Each structure stands twice: as structure tokens, then as C-alpha cells.
Simulated assay, not measured.
Amino acid sequence: MKEFSFSDLNRRSGDVLDAALAEPVSLVKRGKAKIVMLPVEQYERLRDAVRPTEQRAFTLQNAPEEDIAMLMAGLQEIIDEDDREGR
């Protein structure tokens, strides 16, 4: 990844933007990367990769049956373990 300083961005904005269109570019301030610029296509791929494509949180009323079954089995294991340990 190419690195440019914030001063480079002010002085050579065309070069920085051209580089960012080709690949991610890091903007560095006081020796530390602070901002990453990247082509919108790469950003969209990253965004879509972390965006859930399906619902991941449920209430007991709308949870899939298999999730409820796993939850109940886990709770039963805890209860059984407590019974064995006399709690």
C-alpha cells in the first residue's frame, strides 16, 4: 500500500488521488496511518463482505427452530451439570 503524508495530499492531491484509484492508499500523520483511501469498488466489496446477508439476531418469537433447539440443548446441559455438582 502506498503511503502519503497529509502534506502530500495538500501539495500533490492529483498524484494521491490517482494512486488511490489504482489501489488503497494510506494517509500518514506523524508517522502513523490515519486514513485509508481506496477505489469505491473495493470499499463496496469490503462493506458487503461484513454486512450480514441474513438476519443474525432473533427474539424467541422469530428464531429459527434449529436455533431454539440448540439453545434448549445448551440450557439442559447447564442444568444437568449443576445437578451433578449438587448446585
Rank of each mutant, 00 (worst) to 15 (best):
D83T: 06
R30E: 10
R84F: 10
Q42P: 00
F4Q: 05
N62W: 09
D83Q: 06
D80I: 11
L27R: 03
G31V: 12
D15I: 04
P24H: 05
V28H: 08
R11E: 04
S5A: 09
L9S: 02
L17F: 07
E41M: 04
Q42V: 08
D80P: 09
A69Y: 06
A69R: 15
E23H: 10
R45C: 04
E66N: 10
N10H: 12
E81C: 04
R12Q: 10
Q55A: 12
Q42Y: 00
E44F: 01
E23G: 00
E44D: 01
I35S: 12
G31W: 15
M1I: 05
I68R: 03
A73L: 13
Q55C: 05
E65F: 09
T59S: 14
E81K: 13
R51A: 04
N62M: 14
E23L: 11
F58G: 09
G14W: 05
L38V: 03
V40T: 12
K32E: 14
D83V: 08
I79H: 15
S26I: 14
L46T: 04
D80N: 13
V16G: 01
E41C: 07
L75F: 03
A33F: 04
L17T: 05
Q42W: 02
P64W: 04
Y43L: 06
E65D: 15
S5R: 08
I79T: 15
Q42F: 03
I78Y: 10
I35Y: 13
S13M: 13
K32C: 08
P52F: 02
K32T: 13
A49T: 04
E44Q: 13
K2S: 14
D18K: 07
E23A: 14
A19F: 11
I78W: 11
A69M: 09
V40Y: 11
E85S: 01
P39M: 02
T53F: 04
S5L: 08
Q61Y: 05
K34W: 10
L17V: 12
F58K: 02
I35F: 12
G14M: 12
K32S: 15
I68P: 01
L75I: 09
D83L: 11
M70K: 14
D15E: 08
L27E: 02
F4I: 03
L46R: 06
P64L: 08
P39L: 07
E3N: 15
V28C: 09
R30N: 11
P24L: 07
R45N: 08
E54H: 10
R51L: 03
G74V: 02
S7Y: 03
R56N: 08
P24K: 05
S26D: 00
E23R: 14
F58R: 01
I35C: 12
A22H: 11
V50F: 13
Q42G: 09
E66W: 08
